[in-house]
């Protein structure tokens, strides 16, 4: 009986110490991590909608930011959307102008195959979306204008479809 209690106590102590150290580390890193994510998001939003200088969360739609220029006029919308990639969820940030033409696409996070699917985060793939309307945003194999990343069709398709369907939903909603 006593040995069982001893085992329990030993693991209790080890795990408690572990818990405390993790809590402490988290306490010190969480603000940095959170602010980095925030900064990235703002930077990313400016990246995808360069004409805008200020972003305001939309009151009418979820996960949509409206972008305004210095003069206060709305120049476009920024969307956060999630694509189901090959091996992970791909967090996408993209923007369209008032005519529903894409002004930029950015990948915030993904865990696709390093070196292959992960290239959907790259400029080479994403720059293709600029200036295209929803109809053209499909893989070339399906009749659209987007070249998939070599050997990463699933990841490429996921991103493409996510952007396209989001624009479609939004267009339906606002027309």
């Amino acid at each position: 009986m006593k040995d069982i209690a001893k085992l329990g106590m030993y693991l209790l102590i080890v795990c408690s110490v572990s818990g405390i150290s993790l809590a402490v580390t988290n306490h010190f890193t969480a603000p940095r991590i959170a602010s980095e994510m925030e900064r990235r998001k703002n930077e990313a939003m400016s990246d995808v909608l360069p004409a805008a200088s200020k972003f305001v969360k939309s009151k009418t739609h979820e996960k949509v930011f409206e972008g305004f220029n210095y003069a206060g006029a709305r120049v476009g919308y920024v969307f956060e959307t999630l694509a189901s990639g090959y091996s992970s969820d791909i967090e996408i940030l993209f923007a369209i102008d008032n005519e529903y033409i894409v002004t930029g696409v950015k990948v915030l996070s993904q865990s696709e195959t390093p070196g292959l699917g992960s290239k959907v985060s790259g400029d080479e793939f994403l720059k293709q979306f600029k200036g295209k309307s929803r109809e053209k945003i499909m893989l070339k194999k399906a009749g659209g204008d987007i070249d998939a990343v070599t050997s990463a069709t699933i990841s490429s398709k996921a991103v493409t479809e996510a952007v396209r369907s989001r624009i479609y939903e939004f267009q339906k909603d606002t027309k």
Binding site: L22, T25, T29, I33, E36
Partner: peptide
């Protein structure tokens, strides 16, 4: 976990 948090932060 500690190294994961640290790398994410820095």
């Amino acid at each position: 976990t500690i190294v994961d948090l640290l790398m994410n932060a820095y």
